[in-house]
Simulated assay, not measured.
Amino acid sequence: MAAVLIAASAPGLAHQMLLPAVPDGAASALQNVRLGLGHRPPHGPVVLHSGSWQLDLPKLRELQRLFHTHGLKLCRVEGHCEETLVAAAAIGLPVISNRGAEDDGSATGEGHNQASGAIEALTGRDGLNLHRGTLRSGDHLEVGGSLLVLGDVNPGARVRAVGHVLVWGRLRGIAHAGCAGDANARIVAMQLRPLQLRIADAVARGPEDQPPHGFCEQATLVGGTIRIDPAEPFWPVADA
């Protein structure tokens, strides 16, 4: 699966490049990023979310050169692989460790409490709101702009956004995009199998069949009905 490039929601902010959650032995990070960049990526700074990928100095320098050829500047690396963070720091890049936000659901009690209280922290903010970590049953996130969850949304968890809902993981709870009435809002996930979907005032149940292999999925409102299709290469953040 290709990496995903999320365009900055406003001028002066960094774009976000997300590597697939699980490193694929058949594809290198460079190949994933190249596929994720597409033909016409936006210019400017970019944050690399490396997850559990182990990237040494030569690989990071190669990624820097690839970004540069597309008019992008690698400005920060975030992940939970110590070797990658050490290598990034060695070439002068700022790093952020996300060791408490692995997608395997084993977050600490402190991380779970942060997720449960995130509604107070995020409600009312415009643009892209980022939450790292899996949301469990009983968790509820609501934001004023678009929401990006780096983790799963488990059954019993709810996410709600005035803009788009983007899940870099499995969406199996309840998601409501365009909660203020925006019929152009989308719900995008690596695996879209929610208990319930809502876009603006439309409501639908999630599909029961298996997701297509190698594709993210998106839900959009078409003619008043929620439709699920393979997601577009660029996630819809720039217009949020």
Results as ranks from 00 to 15, higher is better:
residue 6 I to K: 14
residue 134 T to C: 11
residue 102 E to W: 12
residue 167 V to G: 03
residue 42 P to M: 00
residue 149 V to C: 06
residue 110 E to Y: 05
residue 186 R to I: 09
residue 69 T to E: 10
residue 34 R to L: 08
residue 236 P to L: 03
residue 234 F to T: 14
residue 80 H to N: 14
residue 225 T to M: 08
residue 155 P to K: 03
residue 35 L to G: 10
residue 197 L to I: 09
residue 204 A to Q: 09
residue 129 N to Q: 04
residue 67 F to Q: 08
residue 207 P to N: 01
residue 1 M to T: 15
residue 224 G to P: 05
residue 78 E to M: 13
residue 177 A to G: 07
residue 184 N to A: 14
residue 112 H to E: 10
residue 136 R to P: 02
residue 58 P to I: 11
residue 135 L to P: 12
residue 81 C to Q: 15
residue 178 G to C: 04
residue 53 W to R: 14
residue 170 R to Y: 00
residue 56 D to A: 11
residue 189 A to T: 11
residue 55 L to Y: 11
residue 1 M to F: 07
residue 152 D to A: 05
residue 107 A to C: 14
residue 9 S to G: 15
residue 172 R to A: 13
residue 226 I to Y: 06
residue 189 A to S: 15
residue 184 N to E: 13
residue 210 Q to V: 06
residue 197 L to R: 03
residue 62 E to T: 13
residue 40 R to E: 07
residue 146 S to K: 10
residue 76 R to K: 15
residue 195 L to M: 13
residue 162 V to E: 11
residue 193 R to N: 07
residue 112 H to M: 09
residue 190 M to K: 13
residue 220 T to C: 14
residue 186 R to K: 13
residue 63 L to N: 06
residue 165 V to L: 04
residue 156 G to E: 04
residue 8 A to P: 11
residue 38 G to Y: 02
residue 53 W to E: 14
residue 55 L to F: 10
residue 71 G to Y: 09
residue 94 P to W: 00
residue 50 S to Y: 01
residue 178 G to V: 06
residue 227 R to Y: 00
residue 151 G to S: 06
residue 42 P to H: 05
residue 175 A to C: 08
residue 223 G to H: 07
residue 197 L to T: 02
residue 156 G to I: 02
residue 116 S to R: 04
residue 128 L to S: 03
residue 129 N to D: 01
residue 237 V to P: 03
residue 102 E to N: 12
residue 40 R to G: 01
residue 3 A to G: 15
residue 156 G to S: 01
residue 123 T to L: 08
residue 177 A to P: 09
residue 177 A to M: 09
residue 51 G to E: 08
residue 224 G to M: 03
residue 111 G to T: 13
residue 39 H to Y: 04
residue 182 D to Q: 09
residue 43 H to W: 01
residue 74 L to C: 07
residue 28 S to N: 05
residue 192 L to M: 10
residue 50 S to V: 08
residue 62 E to P: 00
residue 167 V to P: 08
residue 133 G to L: 04
residue 183 A to S: 08
